[in-house]
Design a protein around this nucleic acid. Structure first.
Length: 140
DNA sequence: GCCAACGTTGGC
DNA sequence: GCCAACGTTGGC
């Protein structure tokens, strides 16, 4: 299983809307590095949902429910989406400031490449952030 | 609201 | 193929 983090501005699409929708396709990725990460997602992978600009915090965990397919919002076959389902809300959201204060997380692309919107994480990074969020997952 | 970082575009 | 100009993202 692999671990990821996706970013979105909550004014455009936020965690609460995602929970209401029950499932969504993650569209609008127009960056090759982020696109390549989308393509590497496998069904069942766990994905942090991060609110950029407003809040700047990880709100919850999503699960990949469908692997990459062409982005229905683009004519260009280069771009793909995956389907995500809400899996678990973090008991306490983990802020960017929290993450920056942790030496263990200093190598996260979230910090190093602030413009990348789809980011891979290691299992230990993922687990560490879950602990920071006071959240346990039964299948980890 | 500003600006640094970075990706993309287009002229040469 | 290089690089300047420009646009976008996102933290502060």
């Amino acid at each position: 299983m692999n671990f990821w983090l996706v970013k979105q501005e909550p004014s455009q699409y936020n965690w609460d809307q995602f929970v209401k929708d029950k499932e969504t396709y993650w569209d609008g990725v127009r960056n090759y590095q982020a696109r390549n990460n989308l393509k590497n997602m496998r069904k069942g992978d766990l994905v942090f949902f991060y609110h950029s600009v407003i809040g700047k915090e990880i709100k919850g965990v999503a699960k990949v429910s469908k692997e990459n397919y062409p982005d229905p919002t683009s004519e260009d076959p280069n771009w793909v989406v995956v389907n995500l389902k809400p899996y678990k809300e973090l008991l306490s959201p983990v802020t960017l400031a929290d993450i920056k204060s942790q030496q263990k997380l200093a190598n996260l692309a979230l910090i190093k490449q602030s413009r990348l919107s789809v980011i891979p994480l290691t299992k230990s990074e993922f687990k560490f952030i879950l602990i920071m969020g006071n959240t346990k997952l039964s299948d980890l």
